[in-house]
Structure formats: structure tokens, C-alpha cells
């Protein structure tokens, strides 16, 4: 597929900095961000909320058979991270020489995720490193 630029651009606050959302009525936080609170529905009051980028590994795997755009980085580790704020998010765990295991603490880093061919955009995205 040939991507037009707006698709990744509109998500940049979330993909670079883990900016999600929070319902000010019930206190529930969301990542990725959403417009309607799952608890309060139309009565909710959703506001932007930047996550700390810190959490711990809840589950993980190593992708050894990647989609097309990820062939040059395979194999790579992905995990479900339980953020310190509560919600779970999925993301890459970069290699920093430490061993991934359930419960291991992580923090956010910025890396390349995909590149659109030879001439297209470079898509930067949060990933996690073990601390």
C-alpha cells in the first residue's frame, strides 16, 4: 500500500509521546485516546492526558515472522505493558541488553517504526526499553 501522510500525522501526539485521554467524570484513563468514555458514555468528560511512559511487562512475545514492512527489523520483541496509570498498551521492547520477563519495568523511548519505501515518510513511534 502507498500511504498518504495524514494517517500517521494525526496520531503523532499519541505515537511520539503517549498522549491518551482521561474522563474527568469517572477518572478512567485511556490509551490510545478515545472520544467517548467507556463507563460514562455520552455523560463523560474526555480530556487529553499525557501518560508517563512508564509501566511493566504484562505479557510479551518475539515476532519472528513479520509483516512486510518489518522484515528488516525481525525478530523483534513486543509486549503488553501495564502502564503506571493503569491502562494496558502494546509496544515494542527495544534491545538494551536486558532480559524481558513478566513484571519487568519499562520506560518510553522514541524509535523508527516503519518507513514507506525508498522515498516515503519515516514513521516514528514510541517503543519501550527495560529499566
Amino acid at each position: 500500500m502507498e500511504n498518504a501522510p495524514a494517517g500517521s500525522w494525526r496520531k503523532q501526539d499519541a505515537t511520539y509521546n503517549m498522549t491518551g485521554s482521561k474522563c474527568e467524570k469517572c477518572g478512567t484513563m485511556y490509551f490510545p485516546p478515545r472520544i467517548i468514555c467507556r463507563n460514562c458514555g455520552r455523560d463523560g468528560k474526555i480530556k487529553e492526558h499525557k501518560f508517563s511512559g512508564e509501566g511493566s511487562v504484562y505479557s510479551y512475545t518475539v515476532i519472528r515472522v513479520p509483516p512486510h514492512d518489518f522484515r528488516n527489523v525481525a525478530p523483534y520483541t513486543v509486549a503488553v505493558i501495564k502502564t503506571n496509570e493503569g491502562p494496558m498498551v502494546e509496544g515494542h521492547i527495544v534491545d538494551n541488553g536486558k532480559k524481558v520477563e513478566i513484571g519487568a519495568k519499562v520506560r518510553i523511548v522514541l524509535r523508527r517504526m516503519t518507513v514507506d519505501g525508498e522515498e516515503g515518510l519515516i514513521h516514528y513511534h514510541y517503543k519501550f526499553e527495560l529499566v
Binding site: 515476532i63 523483534y76 503488553v80 502494546e90 515494542h92
Partner: peptide, 21 residues
């Protein structure tokens, strides 16, 4: 697509995350 596939998390990858847990 936006939050899993865009990060290269494949279908086996999703079930692997469930299996590990």
C-alpha cells in the same frame, strides 16, 4: 490496525501474548 498491525504485531503475535499470559 492502528495500534497493533502498525506496530508489526501479527496475528500469531497477539495469540502468543495471550498464551504467554
Amino acid at each position: 490496525q492502528e495500534w497493533e498491525l502498525a506496530q508489526g504485531i501479527t496475528f500469531p503475535g497477539l495469540y502468543a501474548l495471550m498464551a504467554r499470559r
